[in-house]
Design a protein around this nucleic acid. Structure first.
Length: 809
RNA sequence: GCCGGGAUGGCGGAAUUGGCAGACGCGUUGGACUUAAAAUCCAAUGAGAGCAAUCUCGUGGGAGUUCGAUUCUCCCUCCCGGCACCA
């Protein structure tokens, strides 16, 4: 046996063998329990893998391999999220078509990923840009269409001038494009939407049963933004028209002293004849239209608005006439686009009323206040007890909400901030939307038998603000599915789908990747789903993760799935920073290339190092000097086994060794389940260090060590397993169990404190009585000097842990 | 502004959830081996004081609860993330 731990030779050998023998290729086995481990599939970029990729893949691989040892039928797939803007932009930059650049990127990613020895079932590899895949993405679009969940609508949408396309709300971050950080403007366009809002309530309530990080659940909760309130109508004086407002505080209705409409509110047109200051109003509306969302947010430190002169609304609670304003702090897209302003109890209304000198009436007082100082009105936004509210005085807010809403014939309603998902894009590199327009027959879905609608290649794919598909000749050579006419009067939809549509169902396709009749067979999906563990970046909190949940629920309602939630357990990997504690980036020059790390130290070392760096979900800096520690650990293991073989397998084993092996099995098993890989590796290091010191241990102990280390470092353990004479593969060996009695020590060291300060320690048996331990403690030389001549006030003994003697002079 | 997470040696991080703070690893220092270096092995390594045994301080800062606090409560500072005029 080689004294040198030659990682290159070993890793290549086992990777080839696993692949040749299809060790990780799986089929449905009804007799066997299944486990579906999944990492978020990568977006193949020309830059290649960064060190963050293997972090999540290794974590998933450890879990997958662990469950294989436990006897599960484990599905651990991989594929490519291949469509999308960055790939297209890169293609434009280098002047090569995106299908070529993407294919190249995928080849490179595949090579890199394979070098880590992940236990993927490569026979299930998929790419979203493959017609065999996007055919079914299109089919899913048609399902959405058929069930009324896909619709086309004209309206204000987010437009990125730089990317020359519309964007979903989820892709606009602080008024900026998620991809290029350019300002997003509002544009009136006809676009395709998925009706995700139909599922708002279920997307919210479903979160409760998921084992997901709290921050992700919270982000989704905030994004869905549920609020329960009332719709209340305010009649307009001398008009048949009325203004409907939405409020979460109907209990404050008596304090509503004016109404505010969003500048875009449609009622303004109908009321035009009554408005006396039309010019001023129109100016304000035009000015608002010009502002981007970003400006509307950042400039609105100070509120602005215009009073609609000649117009009065009537407060239905007390029939008081109140003025009507338009102001851009009210959003047309939320609620009814109109609010009742209660300046005494709402911060924004307060600010506005102060500025324009409007009436402020206090109608709620805090529960605790006995007297009310009406002269000195202060902003109070919490709930409380009603005052100045006629018959409702003295009621608490909660009760008053119901009663007042009822009195004014209001309606209790629920509002969500979530908007429908805008899925059409005016870009090339995506799945074409399968719709045909015929001048005579109108808009029609492409018949399922005609799928896929192939992405044409006879185009100049540079963005022009219209989809490049407009210019393809081949693409529009199509017959109307209804009247059979072709030519100028029949055209295809030219927009492509948001890549998030492609990634909303890939975990389903993995279950049945080669099905040519269906997107997936219901039986296969029913066997594998839900995903038992899903690991990926936190940046998808409200994007992919929300969309995939929506797809799952929609497909369930279409009858294709039996489950309601796709991912039972989710964990995020933290970002790996550069050595300078900054985000890795080409411009900073702090990027670590995983290829170099694998070449120099080996895949096993890289895997161990990345898992040992710290908790998976934490952000942590890379440290090239620290990798050596993980390498030394594996080298030490290599030499321990080597010497053990050279010394003819010395099998005399100390009691401590026996115990430590048991403790390590326990610790590693528990830590894998809890995804605490850093402490699991620490325990394995302790065991290997001890074996290196003792040099003598049983064959069984070595077997156990190799099995529990295998998920972390699969190549070296497999090699050593073979070297010590095993013929079968280590990956299929059963996971060892631990002996509860052996894990427990029979005697323990108990710390002795005097007045809370550590003054000594004693060795006692695990089941020693309190009185025994205490008298032993008092007799200790180191303790005596602290307690002699003093009065013992109290003695505490925590079994097996600590003694505390409290004394006073 | 609101909500969430966090702050522990020179560095990455442990700590059975109220019980010996600093496991494990990196780094550093000293020693062994070597002509020498690398590698490896052994020892030390939170700070301060002391020849020493020992002692004092110490988990962002300040208070509190407790026999005992990195852990619980309150206040403050800083960092990271989410939402942000959502009525």
């Amino acid at each position: 046996m080689d004294r040198y731990y030659d990682h290159k030779k070993i890793e290549t050998k086992w990777q080839q063998l696993w692949e040749k023998e299809s060790v990780f290729v799986v089929q449905e086995q009804t007799k066997q329990k299944k486990y579906y481990a999944l990492c978020m599939f990568p977006y193949p970029s020309a830059a290649g893998l960064h060190v963050g990729h293997p972090e999540s893949y290794t974590a998933v691989d450890i879990i997958a391999r662990y469950h294989r040892h436990l006897g599960y039928n484990v599905l651990n797939p991989i594929g490519w999220d291949a469509f999308g803007l960055p790939a297209e932009n890169y293609a434009i930059k280098v002047g090569v078509p995106p299908w070529e650049t993407t294919a190249k990127s995928i080849d490179n990613f595949r090579r890199q990923i394979k070098s880590f020895g992940f236990s993927y079932d490569w026979s299930r590899e998929i790419s979203t840009a493959d017609p065999n895949y996007y055919r079914w993405t299109q089919w899913l679009f048609l399902q959405m269409y058929k069930h009324g969940l896909a619709y086309k609508k004209k309206g204000k949408v987010n437009w990125c001038e730089h990317c020359q396309t519309v964007l979903a709300n989820e892709q606009v971050i602080n008024g900026q494009c998620e991809r290029c950080q350019n300002e997003v403007r509002q544009k009136d366009l006809e676009q395709w939407f998925f009706k995700i809002t139909d599922y708002a309530e279920e997307l919210l309530s479903g979160l409760d049963m998921l084992d997901w990080p709290e921050n992700i659940k919270l982000a989704q909760k905030n994004w869905i933004g549920k609020s329960v309130g009332a719709e209340i109508e305010f009649k307009i004086k001398n008009s048949v028209l009325s203004i409907k407002v939405f409020t979460t505080r109907p209990d404050t209705l008596y304090g509503a002293t004016y109404i505010v409409l969003a500048p875009e509110h449609e009622l303004i047109q109908s009321l035009e004849s009554k408005i006396e200051n039309k010019t001023e109003v129109n100016q304000y509306i035009t000015a608002t239209k010009k502002k981007s969302d970003l400006e509307r947010i950042s400039l609105n430190k100070e509120k602005t608005g215009v009073k609609l002169q000649g117009l009065k609304a009537i407060n239905p609670a007390n029939n008081k006439e109140i003025p009507v304003f338009i102001a851009d702090y009210v959003l047309n897209t939320y609620g009814t686009g109109a609010i009742m302003a209660v300046p005494a109890h709402d911060e924004r209304d307060w600010e506005f009323a102060k500025k324009y000198n409007l009436e402020i009436i206090q109608v709620i007082k805090p529960n605790s206040h006995k007297s009310t100082d009406l002269k000195n009105i202060q902003l109070y936004t919490a709930e409380g007890v009603l005052i100045n509210s006629g018959e409702f005085n003295g009621l608490d807010s909660e009760t008053a909400k119901q009663k007042i809403t009822k009195k004014v014939n209001g309606k209790i309603t629920t509002q969500y901030r979530l908007r429908d998902w805008l899925v059409s894009r005016q870009r090339y590199w995506g799945a074409p939307i399968p719709i045909i327009y015929c001048d005579d027959c109108g808009m029609m879905p492409v018949p399922e038998k005609d799928l896929p609608v192939l992405l044409p290649r006879d185009v100049d794919f540079k963005p022009t603000g219209q989809s490049p598909l407009v210019y393809s000749k081949i693409f529009h050579q199509v017959q109307c599915p209804k009247c059979g006419v072709s030519g100028q009067s029949v055209r295809r939809e030219v927009d492509t789908m948001d890549t998030f549509v492609c990634s909303s169902w890939y975990f389903l396709r993995y279950c049945d990747p080669h099905n040519e009749q269906q997107a997936f067979s219901q039986e296969k999906v029913a066997y594998w789903l839900p995903v038992d563990l899903y690991i990926g970046g936190a940046e998808h909190a409200v994007l992919h993760l929300l969309y995939a949940r929506f797809f799952t629920k929609a497909l369930r309602d279409f009858g294709w799935l039996k489950i309601s939630e796709p991912f039972l357990r989710l964990r995020n990997q933290g970002m790996i920073l550069g050595e300078d504690n900054q985000k890795m980036s080409k411009s900073r020059g702090n990027v670590i290339n995983p290829d170099e790390v694998v070449a120099e130290y080996g895949a096993d070392t890289m895997r161990i190092y990345e898992m040992f760096m710290g908790p998976l979900e934490d952000t942590k800096p890379w440290s090239t000097s620290s990798i050596i520690g993980s390498r030394r650990f594996l080298e030490k293991l290599w030499l321990v086994v080597l010497e053990w073989l050279e010394n003819n397998r010395p099998s005399v084993e100390s009691k401590e060794m026996k115990k430590l092996v048991q403790q390590t099995i326990k610790k590693v098993s528990e830590d894998i389940v809890a995804i605490k890989f850093n402490t699991a590796i620490s325990a394995l290091m302790i065991l290997v260090n001890f074996m290196a010191k003792e040099k003598s241990f049983s064959q069984e102990s070595l077997h156990n060590l190799l099995v529990i280390l295998n998920p972390f470092a699969p190549h070296i353990t497999e090699e050593l397993w073979q070297k010590i004479g095993n013929k079968d593969l280590l990956v299929t060996q059963p996971w060892p169990t631990w002996d509860k009695n052996l894990v427990q020590a029979d005697s323990v060291t108990v710390a002795i404190q005097v007045n809370g300060k550590l003054r000594g320690s004693i060795e006692v048996s695990i089941d020693a009585k309190q009185s025994e331990v205490l008298s032993l403690a008092r007799e200790q030389e180191s303790i005596k000097k602290y307690i002699s001549g003093k009065k013992v006030v109290k003695e505490i003994y925590v079994p097996g842990k600590i003694v505390n003697i409290v004394v006073i002079d």
